[in-house]
Design a protein around this nucleic acid. Structure first.
Length: 556
DNA sequence: GCCGTTTTCGGCCCGACTGTTTTCAGTCG
């Protein structure tokens, strides 16, 4: 079994190598196909076996053939040929900051340098001095990049939930320290991608210089990488890069749209604009010289004859055609959540803690909060809260309700429910998956929550299990929850999602907001979310069938 | 190499910033 990410990596390598050969449009074609493969909620082998590779956006005849070749034989002859033409170290040269395909190729062809180590030696030996295009500053920059690459591992993309608190801190800090009006996070962060490469911050202000000064002095800012009249790039202590842009208020919507991306979405949007005799850039929508939109995103999409597209859907997966046909179905939002299905309190939690949660629940207008009173595992019930707290909970602290958590199979869950009547139960699905599942026994008040993640390729099997149990599947960061691609499979199959409400969390905690972004990215409407529905239904009926026209089907 | 609500050929987003250049190429997002 070849993982989708592995195939995508091979295509990206082809793209990089073609870049070095000076190809104009092929590299981007291979990269676009690679991005599509990475986001695929299904194993490539399954797609290939039903002959559907070419339905993947950006995959045409040639790339489909190469993917098939890779799945069949484990290699791509075309890639092997490119590799034989270009030394591996030249690719590493191209990945140095400030070095692109042109420069890397010059190092290789003109200087006979085959990799970063050789380049470092060449720089040290003064072989770049006097070479056209390499002044003092360029050489110093190169020396620094080589130094950094030798010591620090390349900083890749980071999980969204880890970047979340950092991003919120920057927004808060900027609001407090600089003369800004609007502040917004854009980029893949705003789209709710599972991983974030860097952060894009957008502000409106009359005094850009003051904003940049204040931004540079925020705690955690390690260095300024570049600074111009409208843009500043800094690097934080952890190595995360942050781009800050200051734009005029009348262009805020256009800039937000532009810097939210995705790249593929923007490219398609611009093609559409051209077809309508319009031009879109980060300052607005133009008909000739006249600016016809730009203050809000709604204006920008409207000028192109489109309904506003939620950022989480802007991936060029058919959302533009959808928006051309009419308003996009409303996606689930924080305010739709009516219930917390399971909340773990610290083992020492006292009565005051219950009251704190109840107050938080009131603020969030939650009608029910399931508090885990014990974990049933291996046929025994483990205590999880002090006796006084349990007593108080059972005697009623609205809207809190005791919930029993079961880790095991469906049979375990039924046994646990009989041993501790009156509590709902949930199944931790890794174990449930390992055993044959059967529907819960009758007469027990249950609500099944499959608490399980895994590779996107496995999503289909888990969704089917959840459907047979009448379970909802928790969405959010971490290996025990569904990521956006898997969640999309669930939504398309009519299996409801479950979202954490964040009721017990401290401010700045990322679980609930990130889970919400993931669900929205999966195209989930309020009715696709189990705990966004009216309380009282209790059990989800097993074996619900998808309803033909659900949101999940509008993309691929 | 991909793609199509003007197209199966001829396009492919577009601007900021840097360094080095005296008018622009390369990189980046």
């Amino acid at each position: 079994m070849v993982a989708n990410a592995e195939v995508a990596a091979k295509l990206v390598e082809i793209a990089d190598l073609l870049d070095l050969l000076g190809e104009r449009f092929k590299p981007e074609a291979y990269r676009r196909a690679a991005r599509s493969l990475e986001a695929l909620p299904e194993g490539l082998e399954a797609v290939a076996s039903r002959g559907a590779l070419r339905t993947i956006p950006g995959v045409g005849e040639a790339i489909a053939a190469k993917v098939e070749e890779l799945l069949r034989s484990g290699t791509i002859a075309y890639l092997d040929r490119l590799r034989s033409e270009i030394p591996a170290g030249v690719l590493a040269l191209m990945r140095l900051p400030g070095v692109g395909p042109k420069t890397a190729r010059r190092f290789w062809v003109e200087l006979g340098v085959h990799g970063p180590e050789e380049l470092a030696a060449a720089v040290a030996a003064g072989r770049l001095d006097g070479v056209k295009g390499f002044g003092e500053r360029k050489i110093a920059q190169l020396r620094e990049a080589l130094e950094a690459a030798a010591h620090a591992p390349t900083t890749g993309r980071r999980p969204l939930e880890l970047v979340w608190p950092i991003a919120q801190g920057l927004v808060t800090g900027l609001r407090a320290a600089a003369p800004v009006r609007e502040v917004a996070l854009a980029g893949s962060f705003r789209r709710g991608r599972e991983t974030v490469g860097d952060l894009d911050l957008l502000v409106t202000s009359d005094a850009p210089e003051e904003v940049f000064d204040a931004f540079s002095r925020l705690p955690g800012v390690r260095e300024i990488r570049l600074r111009g009249p409208t843009k500043e790039t800094v690097v934080l202590d952890g190595g995360l890069q942050v781009d800050l842009r200051v734009v005029a208020p009348e262009a805020f919507g256009a800039a937000l749209q532009y810097f939210t991306g995705s790249k593929d979405h923007n490219v398609r949007l611009r093609s559409r604009a051209r077809e309508h005799g319009l031009k879109v850039n980060e300052y607005g929508v133009y008909r000739g010289e006249a600016r016809i939109a730009g203050r809000t995103e709604e204006e920008v999409y409207g000028a192109l004859g489109l309904a506003l597209i939620p950022p989480e859907l802007r991936e060029d997966r058919g959302e533009i055609d959808l928006a051309a046909r009419g308003p996009i179905p409303r996606l689930v939002d924080t305010g739709d959540l009516t219930e917390e299905l399971h909340l773990h309190l610290p083992p020492s939690a006292g009565v005051a803690e219950l009251e704190r949660v109840a107050a938080a629940a009131a603020t969030l207008r939650l009608r029910r909060v399931g508090v885990v009173t014990g974990v049933w595992a291996g046929g025994a019930l483990g205590p999880s809260l002090p006796e006084e707290t349990l007593h108080r909970l059972r005697n009623g602290v609205p809207p809190l309700a005791p919930v029993l958590e079961v880790r095991g199979s469906v049979e375990d869950a039924a046994a646990a429910a009989e041993a501790a009547p009156g509590s709902a139960y949930r199944v931790l699905a890794p174990t449930a998956l390992a055993r044959p599942a059967s529907p819960p026994r009758g007469g027990v008040p249950v609500r099944v929550l499959a608490h399980v993640g895994g590779p996107a390729e496995a999503a289909g099997a888990i969704v089917e299990l959840a459907r047979s149990l009448g379970a909802g599947i928790e969405v959010g960061p971490g290996p025990e929850r569904f990521d956006p691609a898997s969640a999309r499979v669930a939504v398309a199959a009519g299996v409801p999602l479950v979202l954490p409400t964040g009721v017990e969390r401290e401010a700045g905690d990322a679980l609930a907001p990130v889970a919400l972004l993931f669900a929205r990215r999966a195209g989930a409407r309020p009715e696709d979310v189990l705990n966004a529905r009216p309380v009282g239904g209790g059990t989800v009926r097993p074996g619900r069938s998808p309803t033909g026209s659900r949101s999940g089907r509008r993309r691929r």
